[in-house]
């Protein structure tokens, strides 16, 4: 019984939240990876692109709610998501046309691209804060829990509750659908294959008649879709705050690099590695251990390796360790 209690406790505070967070990071890292493998630069504006998508979705959610349209047990934001994606695609393509294309034609260095993306980040951050304000907004509605802690206790007779939030299930499900779609697109469709060819060897791809503008546009569309979905899922799971996305940029970059930048599988792997390490290292194990070992064995402290304040530091430490020991990331090889 104590053993089951320990497992329930672990699932409730570590396994499920970390999996949902990992799925959000993975989607964000996939967006970074797609842009990196086609345009070869670290896109500092990706966090703001996520924020932009989540903001558009949030606006439409408010509109739908005021019109009395709801998605039943699911959050209304899911209904608004497709339109949010379209708006974000428009934004991404606009930045590509107005800003990045010029440098692409010049074949500017990756560092120039990165600095330009900082400019885009400023403009988007300003627009977002101007439109929605810097405050915190709640995105989710509908049924908050799939299983409530109390119901679980009642159902199983355990002392520990195990709650699953609706948003956590949605996050994991949507992330699976999205990655499935991405891989189908990259490996099964003509455009996807052209993209992989372009990423692999640009000159050869141009020689065989692949239109670079089209490939780049597709890359931005994919990045916009991934950014909107991950931003919205993060907003649903926690809450929507414009400045959070600036902080999320770091774990997302870390996930992309740890997995092996330019590798879609690596980005997913990296997202989960970062998320699990963040949660595992900042979780206080005292109560968990108390179920497993006799009472007088349990030490006095919280048994927490790192204070939760240092969550973001964890992703960074992993990043540094990986860069030092295995600079190519977990999965090496060619891009995309």
């Amino acid at each position: 019984m104590d053993f089951l209690n320990a497992i329930a406790l672990f699932c409730n505070f570590v396994l499920v939240p970390a999996t949902a967070y990992g799925a959000q990071l993975a989607l964000g890292a996939l967006g970074i990876t797609v842009i990196y493998s086609i345009l070869r630069f670290a896109n500092f504006a990706h966090g703001e692109l996520m924020s932009w998508g989540a903001m558009l979705t949030l606006f439409l959610t408010w509109y739908l709610q005021s019109a009395g349209i709801h998605a039943g047990p699911l959050p209304t934001a899911l209904l608004a998501l497709p339109v949010g994606i379209l708006g974000t695609i428009a934004m991404a393509l606009a930045t590509e046309r107005i800003v990045y294309r010029f440098y692409r034609k010049q074949r500017a260095s990756s560092i120039t691209f990165a600095i330009v993306s900082v400019g885009v980040m400023f403009v988007m951050a300003g627009l977002i804060r101007f439109m929605i304000g810097p405050g915190e907004q709640v995105m989710t509605d509908g049924h908050r829990f799939l299983i409530r802690a109390v119901e679980f206790k009642h159902m199983t007779g355990l002392d520990e509750g195990f709650a699953i939030k609706t948003t956590q299930v949605i996050t994991i499900a949507v992330a699976m659908v999205m990655t499935g779609f991405l891989f189908w697109f990259l490996y099964r469709t003509r455009s996807g294959k052209a993209m992989r060819a372009f990423s692999d060897n640009e000159d050869l791809a141009l020689l065989s008649g692949i239109n670079p503008d089209r490939i780049v546009a597709i890359a931005w569309i994919l990045a916009a879709i991934l950014a909107t979905v991950s931003g919205t899922l993060y907003g649903l799971d926690k809450s929507y705050k414009p400045f959070v996305f600036m902080q999320l940029l770091l774990p997302i970059f870390a996930a992309a690099i740890v997995g092996g930048i330019g590798q879609p599988v690596g980005a997913i792997l990296g997202g989960f590695v970062i998320a699990y390490s963040e949660v595992l290292l900042t979780y206080a194990y005292r109560k968990f251990l108390a179920y497993l070992v006799p009472g007088d064995w349990v030490p006095e402290g919280l048994l927490q390796l790192l204070s939760t304040d240092y969550k973001f530091a964890v992703s960074f430490i992993i990043l540094v360790v990986v860069l030092l020991i295995r600079p190519t990331g977990i999965i090496r090889g060619k891009l995309l």
């Binding site: 670290a42 500092f44 560092i111 990165a114 770091l250 970059f253 690099i257 960074f316 540094v320």
Partner: peptide
Amino acid sequence: ADYLAIATLG
């Protein structure tokens, strides 16, 4: 270069 930027940001 771009890894350095990300590392220093962190």
